[in-house]
Design a protein around this nucleic acid. Sequence first.
DNA 1: TAAAAACGATACGCGTTCGTAACGAGATTG
DNA 2: CAATCTCGTTACGAACGCGTATCGTTTTTA
Lengths: 116, 116
Amino acid sequence: MGIELTPNQALDIWCRAAVDGVKRDAPDLSARQMALLLLVYMTEGPHTVRGLSQTLNISKPAVTRAIDRLSKLEMVRRKSDEADRRSVLVQRTVKGSIFLREYSEIVASAAMASTA
Amino acid sequence: MGIELTPNQALDIWCRAAVDGVKRDAPDLSARQMALLLLVYMTEGPHTVRGLSQTLNISKPAVTRAIDRLSKLEMVRRKSDEADRRSVLVQRTVKGSIFLREYSEIVASAAMASTA
DNA sequence: TAAAAACGATACGCGTTCGTAACGAGATTG
DNA sequence: CAATCTCGTTACGAACGCGTATCGTTTTTA
């Protein structure tokens, strides 16, 4: 429905979550990589390189590289599209689910602990 | 005070904010750089390289490089400590304030738009 | 079926970041 | 004073990411 959140509350929560994530030695993902990962997990597929490229407004090679990185971390997986073999479908993995789950709990905890 | 936020709501908001940020062509900061920036703006100073290094649990050169990057973007500024000239104080700037303000509004908007 | 378009990956040159180790400047200690 | 410690930076070689241009494959079009 929508959650009331002042800009300052948002920053306070974000700060706690970001610091906590770095401190825990989580992979140092760039904003692009994180956005791509979240997109794959939080929106309905199928997710193609071209689609992600358009949605994020970045070049296709940038998407390919982000997927390369996230694949090495086993947070997403490539699967060729049987219907159109030119396409590659970006799929979720167990590790990616766990990573985002942990991250979301950090944010939720940060929200609970927020004072601003 | 604390804000009630389920893990799924947190992810939903984060996804909208992250995608929006990338789409707007905001600087592609790494998790470390973002955490350092937020730390400088959201917690009381003075902020030194050593202090930030310990707080984030990363090496001092990594902090120096993050400050290099954020300095080029004019989001933070170095100032030598008059009391101990070995130390460098990391200070806020107008540009940094504006950047975080905009980002926080993206998050707040994402929270309002969230449905999960 | 031949030509054109679409898809994702790769090549390239450049800039950034990494961790470890060493460095110079400044402060502290004996 | 000189030796030592602390602070932040720099040096180094390796890894990664960027955008543009191009490639090979597959699909669509004429």
